[in-house]
Design a protein around this nucleic acid. Structure first.
Lengths: 138, 138
DNA sequence: CAGTAATTGCACTTCCATTGCATTGATTTT
DNA sequence: AAAATCAATGCAATGGAAGTGCAATTACTG
């Protein structure tokens, strides 16, 4: 089990107080968050800093970006098994129409999608919308 | 074969010159278009009118909205077989990373996606990105 | 400890989506 | 056919999110 500091260093990211805080915030949340979510959690920090921090994390494959169809970009920590950089490792995302939360269904890989002749598939984004387990009462 | 006028009337939409033009524009395009695309095609018309016209079309299931991950909402005419209002009729969209165009692959239905217990799937958005037939040179 | 390089904060800008309100245009009623 | 009514259009403005330039600050290096 490596510390957050070690993780950042292993990715060649300088360890700063801000980055540690943002990482911890993302780690605590089980759901994908927007920039505004982070902004609200750290009122003292500037939006730009958060924006760039998340962008850095993204470039280093620490978080991945999620487009869940709400029109607002969301971010979530990559898990151990989440090799976002690999096209083959594409899990799906679930957006709850009730609580408006988006979660990664890391276990659920996206099935192979067939495309017509002449089309070359490089990447797939799959968002399932509906009611999440918390809201469905099960 | 019904005329555009008849189609609009059958959906309880008043027939206006603007609406006919916009419908024809969408029908000519084989690809999904943004509001700005429409705006550029009708320089004399106001953006708001186009926005509301498309919105009206959308409410009446004449066009459907596409979120292809570019961050800009796109629209495409629903085809004969496209029953957007039905959850079961979900075709997928293909976004070309080269020419930046998005097309509906109406023939290609989205496979059944399994979600964990407690989750209820109501809707699925699937966008495949890659190189389209025109750009792949086939 | 000084110098260098990266990080952070502030101020803007841009772009798209959306709304309020006045005006124009079309439809219905008398 | 004119008046009254309702919808459609155009203009102006707003709001939200993404993104950039630059100066100030902070962290690393020798």
């Amino acid at each position: 089990m490596q510390t957050i500091e070690e993780l950042l260093e292993s990715k060649n990211i300088r360890v700063t107080a801000m980055r540690l805080l943002i990482y911890k915030f993302l780690a605590e949340k089980q759901i994908a968050v927007t920039l505004s979510d982070i902004e609200n959690a750290f009122e003292k920090a500037d939006r730009t800093t958060l924006y760039r921090t998340v962008k850095t994390f993204e470039e280093k494959d620490i978080v991945h970006q999620i487009d869940d169809g709400t029109g607002i970009t969301k971010y979530a920590l990559c898990e151990k098994g989440c090799n976002c950089e690999l096209e083959t490792d594409l899990h799906l995302h679930f957006h709850c129409n009730n609580c408006n939360e988006t979660v990664c269904l890391t276990e659920h890989k996206i099935p192979q999608i067939k495309v017509p002749d002449g089309f070359v598939s490089e990447n797939v984004n799959l968002v399932v919308k509906g009611i999440c387990d918390k809201c469905s009462g099960q």
